[in-house]
């Protein structure tokens, strides 16, 4: 079911949307502190109102070619995750009534492909995104490093 209101944004020259209720803030790029042991699309940690929040480059995670833009940061509702997505730009808030068509998409991360006045938009499933990120971190875990190498 399509949410009542969606937040439109772009990454890697594609239009995406998230349920507006899943996003708590849109921020300008800010100081980010790298940490070790995570895949390269984890840009680091940011301090979001006291919550240490992972900043993930969405294009990098989706293995899409990134663009050298300062971009924006979408902070996911802190009740759901401590996650912020680095995207290229944030557009408008889209009312469900203005969606003219919707079709399914084979990618499990995509809830639906929406026809909107702004063009085709991939509505993302946040839970699938979070699960995917978690599974990737678990697979990326240090593999019982053996003592001896300096």
């Amino acid at each position: 079911m399509t949410p009542e209101r969606l937040l439109l944004f772009s990454a890697a020259r594609q239009l995406f949307a998230l349920n507006l209720q899943e996003v708590c803030e849109v921020m300008e790029p800010q100081q980010c502190y790298p940490f070790a042991g995570a895949p390269p699309h984890y840009q680091g940690l940011i301090n979001f109102h006291g919550n240490l929040t992972a900043l993930v480059d969405l294009a990098g995670y989706l293995r899409l070619p990134g663009r050298p833009l300062p971009g924006k940061i979408l902070v996911i509702d802190t009740r759901l995750a401590h996650l912020a997505l680095k995207v290229d730009a944030v557009g408008s808030i889209l009312d469900a009534a203005s969606i003219t068509g919707a079709s399914s998409h084979e990618d499990p991360l995509t809830e639906a492909l929406l026809d909107t006045p702004q063009g085709n938009v991939r509505l993302l499933r946040l839970e699938t995104l979070l699960t995917g990120l978690e599974q990737e971190l678990q697979q990326n875990a240090p593999n019982n490093a053996k003592p001896g190498g300096t």
């Binding site: 940490f35 070790a36 940690l45 919550n51």
Partner: peptide
């Protein structure tokens, strides 16, 4: 010590995060 929420809470080898005196965040 601050607990890390999803997704980093699933990352092996990281117990949390903290902010140093200069505002820098460390795992």
């Amino acid at each position: 010590v601050k607990q890390l929420g999803r997704p980093l809470s699933k990352m092996a080898g990281v117990a949390g995060g903290a902010t140093l005196g200069d505002g820098e965040i460390v795992a």
